[in-house]
Amino acid sequence: MKEECLLVIVNQSYREGMTQEEIYKIARKSWRVSLDKLSSLKYVFAVSNSKIVGMFECYDWHEIKDEK
């Protein structure tokens, strides 16, 4: 099976021992993805120093223009 995925590098924010919820919070902040690609993305992987530290299945996408 072939699925489209997005790799998010979290080197600066990731710390050993983080929960999956904490990893999700740092990984979801700054994804820059073409709107055309969103419909085909099924998984997002959080990567730190070449190691997958989190995997998330995508159900819905929301655009955030201002993090505040």
Rank of each mutant, 00 (worst) to 15 (best):
E22F: 02
L6W: 06
Q20K: 11
T19E: 01
E63R: 09
W31Q: 15
H62I: 13
S50F: 09
E4G: 01
C5N: 12
K29Q: 13
Y43H: 11
L41W: 00
E57R: 13
D60G: 01
Y24N: 07
S34V: 00
D66V: 12
K51R: 13
L7E: 13
K25L: 08
N11F: 02
I9P: 03
W31G: 11
F56I: 04
I9C: 10
V33P: 00
I52G: 08
R15L: 07
S34R: 13
Q12C: 05
G54R: 00
Y43T: 15
S50C: 04
L7R: 09
E67D: 13
N49T: 04
K42G: 05
M1D: 09
E21I: 07
K42I: 14
K42E: 15
F45L: 15
W31S: 14
D60Y: 10
K37Q: 09
S39G: 07
K51L: 03
A27Y: 01
E21D: 13
M55S: 10
E3F: 14
S48Q: 02
R32D: 10
N49K: 13
D66K: 13
V10H: 07
E63A: 12
V33L: 15
Q12R: 14
N49C: 04
Q20P: 08
D60K: 12
K29H: 05
K37P: 00
K42H: 12
V33E: 06
W61P: 01
L6R: 07
L35W: 07
C58G: 02
S39R: 12
A27W: 04
V10Y: 02
E16S: 05
D36I: 07
K68Y: 11
E22Q: 15
C58H: 01
D66S: 11
R28N: 11
K29G: 11
L35K: 13
